[in-house]
Design a binder for these strands. Structure first.
Lengths: 203, 203
DNA sequence: TTCTAAATTAATCATTTGATTAAAAAATTT
DNA sequence: AAATTTTTTAATCAAATGATTAATTTAGAA
């Protein structure tokens, strides 16, 4: 009885959330109208305020989810003392590329969110260890004491994420990239760790 | 006489353009109001339409400029048959990193522009040779026939550009990156070509 | 079954936004 | 110097936007 009502309520709320995820990812915050979300959800416009109070609150909810899914994948891997550096690089490349192949709009959304709401982002990561205190950074330093671990971390992120953010541009510069993008990304799951190892040898 | 008038007219027009560059780069198109630009320019709001007809036209002008400056740097280098692969990598790293240090908002602006207006972007690059026909791609292929030249091109762009787009996030994950960002980027001018050479050896 | 609470609807609101207008001021031309 | 053109101004407009409202419907509790 009570359960049935709960499901119905979640269902409308969930429909709006679902639509909000889709439209905010596509258009960003400012270019998204509450009417767009209502239409995408097939729901009445007033329900956005009824369930979520404001466009802004709804956006923050979506933003929090997306930032969590983006960084939630990374931080535990970086901090795990039990896995080797090679395991970490392999796991990060594999998981990030897979996730981004399924969510190609995520990088740009996250980049915009970090730029527009750095405080909220910082608050989200409040508990996380800093990079330089992670097992990953230690392992990088051991492997190559001549290059700052931050540099190699930046490289790892760059090689996994940037192709997705730059895809529209890449497709224009090279139609071949457009035609085979997914195959290129699959290949990179194997190549990124190899490239990382090669770079780790550079002084 | 006629010259003096010309300078005055350019001066008001240029003030508005200048302000538009600043505000559009900072807020993007949708979140920028024409009033923001007018205020930033210290000009009357109606002048935006008087000189540029619409917010959209003004934005396109700024977008064209920014895309030109972003890609204008790259394409000639890629297409130059006279310079070696090492020269190219060195020049791209040096020039891109320098330019982006002076224009840190550019990457995100360009990424958003490419995503939101891919047709305009494609029209802009109309005359340019495709990547696979460039001297750069040929040279990559000669150096390493086992890896698609597109992959190495993507890496080159990733290593030079992504750190700037990701800077707000990097600064939260690692305060050390925030404190020494410019030094890290200067260092990368030398390291990126080295990393590229190391990656070129990977099969 | 009746009453109450929650969810939904369509209309409306108050504010904001890009754009227009008409008048005045400034610059240029005759 | 007068006439004409261009630039600037402040007010206004028409449409759009996030949010609110009141009525109705649906669901749940007694």
């Amino acid at each position: 009885m009570a359960k049935k009502k709960q499901q119905d309520a979640l269902s409308s709320e969930e429909k709006i959330k679902e639509a909000a995820r889709k439209v905010f990812m596509e258009k960003g915050y400012a270019a998204t109208r509450t009417r767009d979300i209502a239409e995408a959800a097939g729901m009445n416009l007033a329900l956005l305020n009824y369930y979520f109070r404001s466009k802004e609150k709804l956006f923050e909810l979506v933003m929090q989810e997306k930032l969590s899914s983006f960084f939630g994948l990374m931080l535990p891997i970086l901090q795990d003392p039990a896995s080797s550096l090679d395991d970490k690089m392999h796991t990060i490349a594999d998981r990030y590329i897979s996730m981004l192949m399924a969510n190609p709009d995520l990088p740009l959304f996250v980049l915009n969110a970090m730029r527009n709401a750095p405080k909220k982002f910082a608050a989200m990561l409040k508990g996380a260890d800093h990079l330089l205190q992670s097992a990953f950074a230690q392992q990088l330093k051991e492997r190559n004491p001549d290059v700052a671990p931050e540099q190699l971390f930046i490289n790892m992120m760059s090689l996994c994420i940037f192709p997705f953010a730059m895809r529209p541009g890449l497709e224009v510069i090279s139609p071949e990239i457009g035609a085979t993008f997914n195959a290129l990304m699959e290949e990179r799951k194997k190549l990124v760790p190899k490239w990382m190892r090669a770079m780790l040898k550079v002084k």
